[in-house]
Nucleic acid binder design. Structure first.
Lengths: 229, 229
DNA sequence: CGAAAAACTTGATTCTCATCAAGGTTTTTT
DNA sequence: AAAAAACCTTGATGAGAATCAAGTTTTTCG
């Protein structure tokens, strides 16, 4: 039953932050042009060098964007989480992807064709502003990432990441759930897994954090902040 | 003579990637809402934490965006050169600036108020797409920067920078005029001035480049490329 | 022009982090 | 439940880059 499928899809689209303010009729029209994808853990969505034909919204799962590299030591740039979009910037640019994207767990996502979004942009300036803001957020995050990457010591980079993950600014104690496997987080911080492990060990010995599996309990946010100097 | 001033301003705005495809009449309308600023060497344009009310186009001079830090060792994220825009991403976000901006020489720039952009966006949907492309380009540049930063060796980072500065793709010999003082360039590459100096020395000894002041003559682009592996 | 400041280079030393290697743990698969 | 795979930790070592220090050159400005 096609109408049903379109209706479901429209509901899904409306729940994505980017499309939340778009009129129902527009969303329904968009829903007919959108394709839902399932990818399995380890599957590659696109390779570095591929030409984009649209962009993606992740519904469920986890997608990593990374720079390829010989001898398998790729650098992970970003981990996409449900609700987030990716690939839109390259779509607008018409440049080939500088990174490749891989599902780190089984995932469900929407493929939004370039044509569909172009049509919508002509009619909905609210959406245009939202997309501008969305790409701006991306930019903002990349800037933070660069900031972290440019701090000299490994401990500083880790401390910075932990502070960013604080639920409320100024909280002294909180739990951080790592968004991915430790070696992935390490790569995002431009560290080797070994160094990351050692840093966590040192921070634990200093009484600043406690680690159990993928959960890190920050005990002394102020102490972490002092490392940044 | 107001009309002349507005015309000049419109010419400048038309040359900004963001407004390249906007109708002349609209650019002229925009030009009337734009303010020209003069800042002196060392002057701070905005501080980290300030709220944006628009964005900037640099006409003349040089603006550095940097993360503040105690003991004066701030990390320079980007050097804005004439013709480039900055601050637009944060304007759409409505977030405070994560960096501060400082004129490294006496500079002239345009301040484009948020209101003016909003008015234009409502009228011209093509403009929205162009702005999307503009921000996408910035994002892409940042990604490249991150990619460069994640390359391990100092020589690789310098070689990468020199390749990016090539006038035509594939040229074997060309001159590179460094956009700023060597210590600034070093900081962009996340190197100390000392290390940067040593790397240039080594590359010179290998016969790959020749350095005289702020001009670097690339003698063997292919040799530089081979370093990247 | 000449003094002062800033920018740049070079050398010696220290320290951080990647690499290599091996063992332990958790998760997934069968 | 056992086997396999992926993930994580820990140790030893070496290479590369930061730091410290001292000169040299270039730029700025009275």
């Amino acid at each position: 039953m096609m109408a049903k499928r379109t209706n479901n899809m429209a509901d899904v689209l409306s729940s994505v932050p980017l499309f939340r303010k778009v009129e129902r009729a527009e969303v329904v029209a968009l829903a007919e042009q959108v394709r839902e994808l399932q990818v399995e853990r380890g599957e590659i969505l696109f390779q570095r060098g591929d030409r984009p034909h649209g962009f993606y919204v992740l519904l469920e799962g986890r997608i990593t964007l990374a720079f390829p590299s010989e001898q398998g030591a790729e650098r992970i740039l970003e981990v996409i989480k449900p609700g987030e979009t990716f690939g839109e910037a390259l779509m607008f640019l018409g440049h080939p992807y500088p990174v490749f994207s891989q599902a780190s767990v089984d995932s469900r996502l929407l493929d939004i064709p370039e044509q569909a979004i172009n049509n919508l942009l002509d009619r909905d300036t609210q959406l245009a502003k939202k997309m501008l803001a969305g790409i701006s957020i991306r930019l903002h995050e990349l800037v933070s990432n660069l900031e972290a990457c440019s701090m000299r010591s490994s401990a500083q980079r880790v401390a910075c990441m932990l502070q960013h993950a604080a639920p409320t600014k100024g909280a002294q104690e909180y739990d951080v759930q790592l968004p991915a496997a430790k070696h992935v987080v390490a790569s995002q911080l431009n560290l080797t897994p070994e160094t990351f492990s050692r840093v966590l060990h040192v921070l634990t010995e200093s009484g600043l954090i406690e680690v159990s599996g993928r959960v890190i309990k920050v005990l002394n946010a102020e102490g972490l902040r002092k490392l940044q100097l």
